[in-house]
Simulated scan of single mutants.
Amino acid sequence: MSTEVLFYHLTRQPLEEVLPGLLLKCLERDWKVVVQCGSEERCAALDAHLWSFSDHEFLPHGTIADGFPEHQPVFLTVGQDNPNSAEVRFLVDRAVPPPIDGYGRVVVMFDGNDQEALADARQHWKLFKGQGAEVTYWQQRDGGGWERKA
């Protein structure tokens, strides 16, 4: 079975507004997730944000600082490891992709207003296509939500 790779082109809302909802959908499907960030600073900022993003929803997650990564339903890291045996891997903030074997789904989220992030996403697209992954491209709609473009 090939890995499904979804590219999410952020054009209307920043990562902080979009990521929690996508992570909650993964948890609703009983999928464990690892979120690979491009820097320690971004990882720490997302960790703090995910604890406080909503007054009505709770998103259980952790980092290496919390310990017990194997028990975290969502694990934030800058590394390429998979310490919680996740089925889904998110790549954010221009994170360098690890080998994707073993994942059912990889989600690449990139800022459409950042030319370097766009260039990275194009390179990742070629890489994943070359590995035989099923690749799709999604763009934010004006009113919210996502539209499949490729």
Rank of each mutant, 00 (worst) to 15 (best):
L6I: 13
T77L: 08
G132V: 07
L91A: 02
R141G: 01
G62R: 05
E57M: 14
D47T: 11
I64P: 00
P98Q: 06
A95N: 04
K129P: 02
H71G: 04
K126D: 14
G38Q: 06
M1I: 05
K32F: 05
P14W: 02
K25M: 05
G145Y: 01
H49E: 12
T136R: 14
V18N: 02
Q36F: 04
V135M: 04
A121R: 06
G62F: 12
L76W: 02
W51Q: 11
L24D: 05
Q123G: 13
D142E: 15
F128Y: 12
H9S: 09
C26R: 01
L10N: 08
F75R: 01
E41N: 15
N82W: 10
L10P: 01
G102D: 06
Q115G: 05
C43G: 12
V34T: 13
V74Q: 03
G130K: 07
E57L: 15
H49A: 14
V34K: 07
D55H: 14
G67M: 09
K32R: 15
M1C: 09
V96T: 14
H9Y: 14
E40M: 14
L50T: 12
Y103F: 15
Q72K: 10
L10E: 01
A150S: 14
G102M: 04
L46C: 12
V106F: 03
K149D: 00
V135Q: 05
D81K: 10
V74F: 07
R94V: 04
L46Q: 10
D120L: 09
A86F: 03
G143W: 08
E57W: 14
L46R: 10
R105S: 01
A117I: 01
V33A: 06
E41M: 14
L23G: 03
V108T: 01
A86K: 04
E70T: 00
H61Y: 11
V135E: 06
L50G: 11
A133P: 06
G132R: 02
V106H: 09
G132E: 00
H61M: 07
F68C: 11
Q123L: 09
W146G: 08
A95Q: 10
L19Q: 00
S85Y: 07
Q131F: 02
A65E: 15
R29D: 06
A150L: 11
A44H: 15
G67P: 00
E17F: 13
A44K: 15
F110M: 02
G21C: 11
R122Y: 00
H56E: 15
T11F: 09
S54E: 14
P69S: 01
F53I: 13
K149H: 12
V135C: 12
T11Y: 01
V92M: 07
A150T: 02
H71M: 13
F7V: 04
D93N: 12
P97M: 06
G130S: 10
L10Q: 04
E28L: 07
D114C: 03
T77N: 03
D55M: 14
V96L: 10
G132C: 00
